[in-house]
Design a protein around this nucleic acid. Sequence first.
DNA 1: GACCGTAACACTAACCGTTAGGGTTTTGAA
DNA 2: TTCAAAACCCTAACGGTTAGTGTTACGGTC
Lengths: 192, 192
Amino acid sequence: MIEPSGRRERKKAATRQKIADTALRLFLERGYDDVGIRDVAAEADVAVTTLFSHFPAKEALVFERDQGFEHGLVRAVADRAPGEQLIPALRQEIHALVRHCTAPEAAPVRSLIMSSPALREYEQSMRMRHADTLAAAIAADLGVPETSTPCRTIARFVIDAYALACEAAEPGDAVDEVFRMIEAAWDVSRLA
Amino acid sequence: MIEPSGRRERKKAATRQKIADTALRLFLERGYDDVGIRDVAAEADVAVTTLFSHFPAKEALVFERDQGFEHGLVRAVADRAPGEQLIPALRQEIHALVRHCTAPEAAPVRSLIMSSPALREYEQSMRMRHADTLAAAIAADLGVPETSTPCRTIARFVIDAYALACEAAEPGDAVDEVFRMIEAAWDVSRLA
DNA sequence: GACCGTAACACTAACCGTTAGGGTTTTGAA
DNA sequence: TTCAAAACCCTAACGGTTAGTGTTACGGTC
């Protein structure tokens, strides 16, 4: 019941980090498909089973740093300034996320992801989970049931905005363009 | 250059059908995860390699009958009556597709899909491909470039409508509800 | 300070989807 | 009849993933 304090936690975190760093380095050096799980484990000096106790799948090694995504969206809804409108708050958050992942220093990882169908699919299904989480956060904020169709719809649209903008030629403009459409959709829903 | 006529085609189609039927039967009887590819191949009396020459992956065995989906969406855009509006045409098509997959006789297969994360992910990424195809069809119909953000946005929204409605308590109502929002989004896009 | 429960890790051996390589039969056409 | 290609089969492997079974290192307790 007492959370393990100190050394044990640190060692665990260090192991996890070492695995993730090693994996990303090898993937970038030699390509995702040409690096096996056994290679990563050997290079990080851990057992294969240890690797899988830290990460649920090979693909997850690439999305290590992507943790903030989901949490950021939920916070954008739940912790926004009192009186601030929902959709603009989400627009701002998506702007930030898109800037983050289209930044020049993120380009190698982006192109790694794009180079592998497995990674693209994995990202896709992460996004879907994010959409569900966001839908729940929106429903909670508005005090409507989680199954509310407009909530779930808006959540999906927002995630779509992110995905579309990341692939667009002008990501910032694309966010604004999609959000103009989302705002209109929101206005005619029975939640606005 | 000459298309293979007659017997060969029929035999091939029969083999494919036998594999798909056998697979679906076994999956429904014993569960998706408890039936291996080798089981399906043995029961259908074909080699494993033959199975994979007909289907790209295990998951594809379940979505055999789902072929019309993509084509139907494209036709709804391209072959609609002259003067008919785009969004209403899509709304009608999605209504039909949703009815199809929420029909009572489709329930066992739906619940099979819902029972397996692998199948849910596979369906998800099929839908994404459908969204891309639909975006291209819409772009062609309107005479704008395929990369047009509003096109791609509307296509995604339409696919979202399908997914959301399939999971809603009242699928028909959900389609109408989401399409009211899509219509509003469409009206403020620079394509309307 | 010795002691114990448990979390983290290791090792082995397998399972399962998928593919490569290489051979045999069937089919349609010359 | 003969031939090329298509469809199929078999074997063996590869690579991600997991189960089973220890082993070590830490944290709290007596």
